[in-house]
Write a protein that binds this DNA or RNA. Sequence first.
DNA 1: ACATTAAGTGATT
DNA 2: AATCACTTAATGT
Length: 215
Amino acid sequence: MNSEELNTLLEETFGFMFEEELLKEIAASGTYQKLSHDEILMDQGDVMTDMPLILSGAVKILRDDDDGHELLLYFLEPGDTCAMSFSCCMAQKKSKIRAVTEGKVELIMIPATQMDTWLGKYPTWRTFVFDSIRIRMDEFIEAVDSLAFMQLDERLLKYLRDRVKVVGETDLKVTHQQIAYDLNTSRVVVSRLLKRLEKDGKIKIGRSHLQVLEM
DNA sequence: ACATTAAGTGATT
DNA sequence: AATCACTTAATGT
């Protein structure tokens, strides 16, 4: 991709919130990356040196528990960044989470040093960073009480809705096994719950994919 | 045709 | 809600 196209893409995704100057700096110091499905952007334990700005696609943010179980925290969408990376980048600490691409993803990696200087230089950047943290905090709380208070069937519904939102279509290419993995439960349980949702007319099940009818 | 993978089922804890 | 053991069905080679 040439710089011309990159500028257009940046303009589309972040133009409404960043000033021209900042967009130029992003284009200049960031690294454009195009990733395919299921690539690990950042693993638990990695030291963060850059922070990602999502241009297109979606990124899953997961947390591994002590037993190696995986838990889906939330999705990043275009215009988002990983709030976790703020705290980690600045302190140059290890990541506590894992980021995996969900489908094809385009993003720009910004060196940690830049985001620091931009904080003072650009008010819009400052707003962006703080808003991201606030929004992510909200989602985080949601993730926590979905775990603590919601029944599995409700969590499953929320999961399906989230998923539909990030891929932008009601047809999901997901196996029961993968869902079970994301929700940290067993495949059998997922299959049974999905069956019930299908009976209720909320979804339609096919092999390796399903359709969400009711939101 | 056979092996592999995804999904369904009943019983047990 | 999890796990086991097993079946059935769809897909890939």
